[in-house]
Design a protein around this nucleic acid. Structure first.
Ligand SMILES: [Zn+2]
Ligand SMILES: [Zn+2]
Ligand SMILES: [Zn+2]
Ligand SMILES: [Zn+2]
Lengths: 164, 164
DNA sequence: CTATCATACGTTATATCATAACAGTCAAGG
DNA sequence: CCTTGACTGTTATGATATAACGTATGATAG
């Protein structure tokens, strides 16, 4: 199928060369600091996610990697993507079966994702308060929370205007 | 693959015959009230979800439906499950690629799900405060939220004790 | 009554997403 | 050297989900 890029119109956070470079260098800095091996495939995968300004499916990533001389089989993409997610350089968007570059890779953080049904953009929003509320709800049930998936579906600012 | 039932040890909410009957009759009452057609396949699918005391994959449901003389192909299960979700009788658990009966089908509600990594149980928790916080976060980004997926991963009360 | 229409149910076929298992490469350390 | 562990690549398969189409059934309009 044709490459379904989610997020052609991205949030200001990582639009433009400036934002992209900032994110990438923050990520590289943290990798160095933590002794994490941001190998060529992993780095390139991260660059692809950043350049996409939104979420990419594993097979979208694979297609690009393959075209650039990396491996051609699914595990190549899944391994790189899962490593990026595990180490906080990317996030998995479960509703879209897709992955997106972390917009704030310099710190550990809880994130929520705002998924626009109008333009398929995915925006990473700070989720401190949401996570606190969720932790509280979990505690009430005697449940000890490790991590959470928080994804909102709706319309971004631009698409609300367009439909009005 | 073997039938991976998530949630052999369920929350008190819908454990036991009593809870199951309550949920089922609440669901039937609401279907009647709203003029929704809870047809045999749909009803049976809901019963299966309730009886599972946790989340079932679509193919788990399909296997049981097929064994009882209903259709044998994936769309049969997916249609019933999607209908139940659309009308608030069930929820989709994205992290597990699975579905679970709504524990409170009598009212419209925002729910969060507590997924235990120890016993694979899935508990539906009230998420009013979480949803409010998320709506607030979305608003700050100019995003108009329609609905949300909120899933926490961690350990249920029983499994915390077991590991201690 | 009977034609028409909408909804639901069933099928076949295919698309999409993800992982298991194993082989080759290469750098670090003994 | 030669082992070891991390990484990359492969083949093959498994798991999840939907498109497209035909049939049955029940309601409604003529
Ligand atoms: Zn992030
Ligand atoms: Zn939009
Ligand atoms: Zn519910
Ligand atoms: Zn548990």
């Amino acid at each position: 199928m044709s490459e379904h890029i989610h997020g052609a119109f991205c949030c200001p956070d990582h639009s433009g060369q400036q934002g992209a470079r900032t994110i990438l260098s923050q990520a590289e800095a943290r990798a160095t600091r933590m002794g994490l091996r941001l190998t060529p495939v992993r780095l390139r995968t991260l660059e692809l996610l950043i350049a996409a300004h939104g979420a990419l499916g594993a097979y979208d990533v694979l297609e690009k990697l393959a075209a650039e001389g990396y491996g051609t089989q699914p595990p190549v993409a899944y391994r790189a993507l899962n490593w990026l997610v595990e180490h906080g350089f990317a996030h998995r968007i479960r509703r879209l079966n897709a992955f997106t570059a972390c917009a704030h890779p310099s710190d550990d953080h809880a994130a929520a994702f705002l998924i626009c049904t109008g333009c398929d953009s995915v925006t990473e929003a700070p989720a401190g308060a949401v996570t606190a509320a969720l932790t509280q709800a979990a505690d009430s049930a005697g449940f000890s929370m490790d991590r959470a998936t928080i994804e909102a579906v709706g319309q971004c600012r631009a698409c609300q205007g367009a439909n009005a």
